[in-house]
């Protein structure tokens, strides 16, 4: 991004750039359990998150801006999630969708289930529910878009950790 990771771009330009980014989120659905069905329902005609610029046609993590981890993450699957997250190009975002991805959900005391996807990768938005309704995912996407709109490009494109609050 040239200069934008060295200096803060002026607010009007930042607004335009962030506005463009937040409405073209190529999404990669990491479907692990029943929550993935709710994700699919959200992408279909009734709820239709494409109207919000969320595009569910990413061919893989290398073409995606947003990863939605929907479902039960087991310890055995965890390395794969981390690897695919690392393959995504910056800037990248993660939505943890459903109780299992948030904290282990009903399997919190299982021998095989990870205690939330945030144990291995950073998560931007958590959507609670078991499984959450499609409206909940839409709300989570709006939260993420608000976050992207208020982001500092300098922080986002530099190696510093992101500290922007949703406004």
């Amino acid at each position: 991004m040239g200069l934008s990771d060295k200096v803060e771009v002026p607010p009007p330009i930042r607004f335009v750039l962030n506005w463009g980014r937040k409405y073209s989120l190529w999404v990669f659905n990491f479907g692990l359990a029943c929550c993935a069905i709710e994700f699919i329902a959200t992408s279909m005609a009734e709820h239709d998150f494409i109207r919000m610029g969320v595009i569910p046609f990413a061919h893989g993590p290398r073409q995606a801006d947003l990863m939605v981890v929907s479902g039960t993450l087991t310890d055995k699957m965890a390395p794969a999630v981390k690897r695919l997250y690392e393959q995504m190009p910056e800037p990248k975002y993660v939505i943890s969708f459903g109780s299992c991805a948030n904290c282990g959900g009903p399997y919190w005391d299982s021998y095989s289930v990870a205690k939330g996807v945030d144990q291995i990768i950073p998560v931007d938005v958590y959507v609670p529910g078991c499984p959450p309704r499609p409206e909940a995912l839409l709300q989570g996407i709006i939260k993420l878009q608000t976050k992207i709109q208020n982001e500092s490009l300098k922080q986002r494109y530099s190696a510093e950790p992101l500290t922007v609050e949703a406004g």
Partner: peptide, 26 residues
């Protein structure tokens, strides 16, 4: 077959301790 290679113990034995249960009661 199902467990990760580095997994230790036999989880469906009743003597198998669930770490989450040790930290936090049911």
């Amino acid at each position: 077959l199902l467990l990760p290679d580095e997994f230790e113990g036999h989880p469906l034995r009743k003597e198998f301790l669930l770490m989450s249960r040790e930290v936090k009661p049911w």
